[in-house]
Design a protein around this nucleic acid. Sequence first.
DNA 1: CTGGTTCTGCGATCGCTGTTCGCAGTATTG
DNA 2: CAATACTGCGAACAGCGATCGCAGAACCAG
Lengths: 241, 241
Amino acid sequence: MAEQSEQQSEQSEVSIWLRPARSGRGPAPAFDRDRLAEAGVALADAQGLAAVTMRAVAQSLGSAPASLYRYVATRDELVELMTDRVNAEISYAGLGAGDWLDDLLVLAREARAVCLRHPWLLDVFASSAPVGPRTLAYLDRCLACLDELPLGGKDKLEAIAVLQSLVASLARAELAKQLDATEPPPWRRARDEYLRHAAATGEYPHLTTVLKDAGPAGSKSADELFDRIVTRALRGLLLAR
Amino acid sequence: MAEQSEQQSEQSEVSIWLRPARSGRGPAPAFDRDRLAEAGVALADAQGLAAVTMRAVAQSLGSAPASLYRYVATRDELVELMTDRVNAEISYAGLGAGDWLDDLLVLAREARAVCLRHPWLLDVFASSAPVGPRTLAYLDRCLACLDELPLGGKDKLEAIAVLQSLVASLARAELAKQLDATEPPPWRRARDEYLRHAAATGEYPHLTTVLKDAGPAGSKSADELFDRIVTRALRGLLLAR
DNA sequence: CTGGTTCTGCGATCGCTGTTCGCAGTATTG
DNA sequence: CAATACTGCGAACAGCGATCGCAGAACCAG
């Protein structure tokens, strides 16, 4: 009696968080969504987001590619599950020790830690902004920090978005730095070779002198200058729109 | 006499900017690298970076996919050409009107404008950092701004990198905002529906109240608060590493 | 216990991607 | 005039996400 075609075609446009995992009938599934996410996270942690293919995940679960589509409608949904899953690592224990800005900063540092543990997250955020229950829990905590501020709802959301993208940017910078320490991305050699060649031509005088300067980085005054530059830049760029 | 196999396998690991475009012999090529980049940019501007497939670019040039590999070793190299090409839009006319920070800001705004004109650039920067001659010219100008500052070479480069990622973040925010005004990405409907549902459950109280608040965004005090939050966050995050 | 229903796992396959190989043809060189 | 070194490109390959339909397992109503 029930016409399943209608139901299915409609479900495919509904968020996975609103779709029931199963509905009682039939054989018991071999795993669940969270097991899927776990396998995906393991693969992404080890070999990057690109290694999370339906075939690879299926194999790591001892299953077949087509089977995964019983749990997930698309690969993007799998990434959504993965993203929400790692949000479970966020601890809310350090809150309440200072004012609202301190709390906001504690939350930002937690987010930063998650990004450092799972670098593929930055790739995810680059092309989408998945939202699951645990993401909402984090977002809710952030909003709580801004509770008493004289800001409209949209402004609060935007403030958190800007802060979040700042967290991502700095996490990316940190990861890039500790990636420099390791060996052999093959295309980096090529880029560095071109850079050295360009510096040698003298067409880019400032670049040439800067590359020669092999002095150590990071000083007290450097951090202060960063603040100056970024604050001023932020103001100038916000004003420009 | 010449053993081409050696040459080719070695060339494939050399930056495209160090590889000669052609070497005199044989028939004249049907186009050049820049024509390739132009076609790629046109496609990316119109339909996003994902639309820049070797087949699509070839077709828009009235050519065949395999032919492109006479000009470019991989698709990534094509993206590299595209990225460098749009850097030609940067104008250095507004420089010299103020102090070094003013100049740096003028450059940042130029970069922001390029990102807004070619949103796919943000996708490129998310997964790599292509460097071509025009990119180096821009970088050199930025370094010139920092010339008289008591900073090490590495610090100067890092300062510019942070600034650049800030530009990208804000550009992304702007693009997201003007994307909200347009119609229906199909997966956004699904996400918003879940968001409304989550707000209705009462599990995320602050989110619920914030979503109810439909008041207009953007005020003088909001921009000032942004500054406070972001500056403080930057300091806290830089200190944490 | 039985028959129908509803689900599951999955082999086979589709359309798409980036990329490679080798061949036919053409311009330059000695 | 040959030899050479290039060009464009048809055909093909491997890998990707995703779909279809079927065999079989679990549940429920009677």
